[in-house]
Design a protein around this nucleic acid. Structure first.
Lengths: 332, 332
DNA sequence: CGCGTCTAGTTATACGTATTACCCCGGCGG
DNA sequence: CCGCCGGGGTAATACGTATAACTAGACGCG
């Protein structure tokens, strides 16, 4: 009661194993007659034949599988990146396997004992640099997402126009009349956040004020940090620019606890346009990131690299989405 | 510049390939001398040897890989299930691969061309029944999560005590004095939601009122549906029991739009205890599901099945978490 | 008629591993 | 001195596939 092999199909169809392989592999044009091919396909269907992929991989020296390294599986953004990557991959007969950052699994344990070496290439977020080291995938073709162009490990790179997104946010707020800004930064060591900080500093005019507060990427942590920041002495900012919607949600909660209304007393902007952005009240003004497109381009880039051809593309544009969490500053 | 094979290690160590395999496979007690084993390990480390898994899989006829079939990758709940499963798997030299329901990838495309047949077993959520059909994994050992015990496909089963969770919610609300309930049900065809509906109907006493409204599992959809339900003529319910935190968040938004305060005018309960539950204002009274434990038990069950031993365990208990979205009904 | 060419296949082999069956050699009991 | 045994290792093989190299026959053409 074992799985049928190509040899079983061959004897059922009355041909050789090689013929079966040719027919099912699609490379039989002019090598096998239409009639025989039909017989083979019939026999294969009859037996419910499916090729043994371990054998195929061994023969081809390729697994047609890419690894997507993400910082956290709970992240809606990376879930969408995965979707995009999987779509492109499946168009090319590739599979995609996820490697979430080992956090919560334990640093010493490798969640991919069986997949680790069975890969053709790696697509990795710059936010998961440590996980990437853990894989030791340095010997595999690597595509990095939203990473520092100076990082030499990547064979290709897919970046979002984060700086432009920050610029759009800042101009929106400046246009509303805001002059005292608080940058609510993600307490994560990642190039992509550094870029946002720099972009914001660059676009805020000299006569305006810009301070910075950091918090880990979670709503409760963000709330705590922002409560402290808003309660601090001195002139209160009128607009909080957040690195992430999670931070923005936390900031809104903090504001409400302190009796501040959003957006009348305090404007808050997010980043990413997660589902959360429209789940909270008021809905967040934020920056929409085309996550699926990141995944698609990442996979395309990897395929190009594997193919030996080069790959390069402009930064993926991002768009400001104005909702209810921003308004002109209080008259004061 | 190709990857070293066990044969390369053998010639470097001055032994045969078989010896290398024995030593590195750990089955050399009494077959190879301590000294030779040391030499082999040294050579392997020197060359950076890592076994070719396609070859190993082919030889062993096993891939040591399980597939986790989930309805949606964006789901925080299943992300945690995955974490638990991956932890147990890695303890046993197994890997876990995710198969998200094809939604968004297209029904005709199989995101796992390379993994489909390269699996030892499948763990599937009952919410992803159609995806499961698409894989055609019927011939593989199957563990089902939160599924109908009458479904005969599963070799083992891991269930949460959903009915008990609903009971806890209902008793909490009854204890607060509520008598007019609205069940906000997920518009998803899944056993796990049917169970909740039945449990709620069973625990609400005859003199109380219980209606039902359905909506898809998203905050905007939930908000729309609940706005309509609350604006409907007739006596308004005082408590909304939701199948999911997403629905609860939508219900809160709908209430606020209609000028109702939560929890003073309307109590709302969630289910799942997602991050969202503490991100919204007020924080949701909800039912915490130990998702990691579901993943752990699911993987343990699969390993047991593969091992030929049976597996059975009681339902995993769930706990009510009381937060700010429930209060006694308005005096009226 | 002889030769090249085309069609429709087949035979043979390699991929890298795990494991079974075998082999060699030194020592030991008889 | 021979048979036997056990320690230490090796040779050989199979897993199932893809493909390069080959072949048998039919056919056209000079």
């Amino acid at each position: 009661m074992t799985r049928p092999t190509s040899r079983d199909v061959a004897s059922a169809a009355g041909v050789s194993q090689a013929t079966v392989s040719l027919v099912l592999g699609g490379k039989w044009r002019g090598r096998v007659s239409e009639r025989t091919a039909g017989l083979v396909r019939e026999a294969a269907a009859e037996l419910g034949y499916r090729p043994n992929l371990a054998a195929r991989n061994l023969r081809l020296g390729s697994t047609r599988t890419a690894l997507l390294v993400v910082p956290a599986l709970t992240s809606e953004f990376f879930a969408r990146v995965y979707t995009g990557a999987a779509r492109v991959a499946s168009d090319h007969g590739f599979g995609v396997v996820l490697y979430p950052s080992p956090e919560g699994i334990g640093p010493a344990r490798d969640p991919f004992p069986s997949a680790r070496a069975a890969l053709d290439g790696v697509i990795a977020s710059s936010m998961a640099a440590d996980a990437l080291d853990a894989i030791g995938g340095a010997e595999l073709p690597l595509v990095m997402l939203d990473s520092d162009p100076a990082d030499g490990r990547a064979a290709a790179r897919v970046n979002l126009a984060m700086a432009d997104g920050v610029r759009q946010v800042a101009e929106h707020l400046l246009g509303l009349g805001h002059r005292r800004f608080l940058h609510f930064a993600a307490d994560v060591d990642s190039w992509t956040f550094d870029v946002r900080a720099e972009a914001l500093a660059a676009v805020v005019p000299p006569h305006a004020e810009l301070r910075t507060v950091r918090a880990p990427l979670s709503v409760p942590d963000a709330r705590t940090a922002m409560e402290a920041a808003l309660a601090a002495p001195g002139e209160r900012p009128t607009a909080v620019v957040c690195d992430d919607d999670l931070l923005a949600a936390g900031a809104c909660k903090a504001a409400r606890r302190l009796g501040l209304r959003v957006p009348e007393d305090l404007s808050v902007t997010g980043f990413d346009d997660l589902a959360l952005a429209t789940a909270v009240e008021p809905e967040l003004t934020t920056v929409r990131l085309p996550a699926e497109q990141v995944g698609e381009q990442g996979m395309s880039a990897l395929l190009a690299v594997l193919d030996g051809s080069g790959w390069t593309a402009p930064d993926i544009p991002v768009d400001l989405v104005v909702r209810g969490s921003t308004a002109p500053p209080p008259a004061a």
